[in-house]
């Protein structure tokens, strides 16, 4: 008998270790997958996603917000938006969860090596980009200048703000924050008011050499792609992390079709260039 192949539908068990409320609808979940899952998870590339099971509700694709820790723990930044994430938000530390993956392609880290990297995050789009940022910073010498531009609706819902500010203070990256609206009087350190594209317009950078990584709500992509291209970033170097509702994660259920590609196996990271032929993608 050959070694029994594990059913790819079967999640590994994971325990919820800790949850930190980030905003009223978004929390950071730290989970500990069972040991058998670690070999697979250690191959995680920023930009890939995992399927998280919440027993009773089902599965949801989530792009981890950080690289797996040395002990295999994983951080997931999750907004309460649907059937599964609602129940996830009700779970207390110790609760059993499930995990499959990682799935998808992730960012082309080898190709990006030696280049400046510009990360553009809108709203919850910071979560997948945070794992990329952590990779870049951990291997700081392999990459050129690292810049993060992050836009949120308002200061209150800006995620990882202190952490990002601390990273920027170490001088290893440049950080630009912007909000759509800011309350007139607040004690918090202020940041620019305006949209991400506005931020980009005033930004001087080595566009020809730069790789851009973009993640945010769908309308953001279209204008950012145009602005990045206009600034001189090649469309093959504009990497977009797209959101779809993957059910299976392995290219079968066909819910995540983007043109003739499937987000779960060909993505979720796509190059702006390859999406040009797929007008319905964005």
């Amino acid at each position: 008998m050959s070694e029994r192949v594990r059913d790819m539908h079967l999640p590994f068990t994971a325990r919820l270790l800790e949850r930190t409320e980030l905003t009223e609808d978004t929390a950071l979940f730290r989970i500990a997958p069972e040991e058998a899952a670690l070999p697979q998870l250690s191959r995680f590339v920023p930009g890939q996603f995992v399927q998280i099971s919440v027993p009773g509700a089902g599965e949801v694709p989530i792009s981890p917000a950080d690289l797996p820790g040395g002990d295999g723990t994983l951080e997931l930044c999750v907004r309460r938006v649907g059937h599964v994430t609602e129940l996830l938000h009700q779970q207390l530390p110790g609760a059993p969860l499930g995990i499959r993956g990682p799935f998808g392609n992730g960012f082309p880290l080898k190709e990006m090596a030696g280049h400046p990297v510009l990360l553009l995050a809108g709203g919850l789009g910071i979560a997948p980009l945070r794992s990329l940022l952590m990779h870049l910073l951990r291997h700081r010498d392999r990459f050129g200048e690292i810049t993060l531009m992050y836009g949120a609706r308002q200061p209150r819902v800006m995620l990882f703000r202190e952490e990002l500010a601390a990273l920027a203070a170490r001088g290893e990256m440049r950080l630009y924050l912007t909000v759509d609206f800011a309350p007139e009087t607040n004690g918090i350190q202020s940041c620019a008011v305006g949209l991400l594209p506005d931020l980009l317009k005033g930004f001087r950078f080595d566009a020809a050499a730069t790789y851009a990584a973009v993640c945010g709500p769908p309308p953001l992509y279209r204008c950012l792609i145009a602005d990045l291209e206009q600034a001189g970033v090649a469309s093959g170097r504009i990497m977009l992390s797209l959101e779809r509702r993957m059910r299976c994660g392995v290219g079968r259920c066909c819910h995540c079709g983007i043109g003739q590609k499937l987000c779960c196996v060909d993505g979720p990271v796509f190059r702006a260039g390859e999406l040009k032929a797929i007008p319905e993608a964005l």
Binding site: P55, G56, A57, G58, H83, E86, L87, Q90
Partner: peptide
């Protein structure tokens, strides 16, 4: 059953 699990059934 879904109420017991703290959720609602899938649609």
């Amino acid at each position: 059953a879904a109420l017991l699990a703290g959720t609602l059934p899938p649609v």
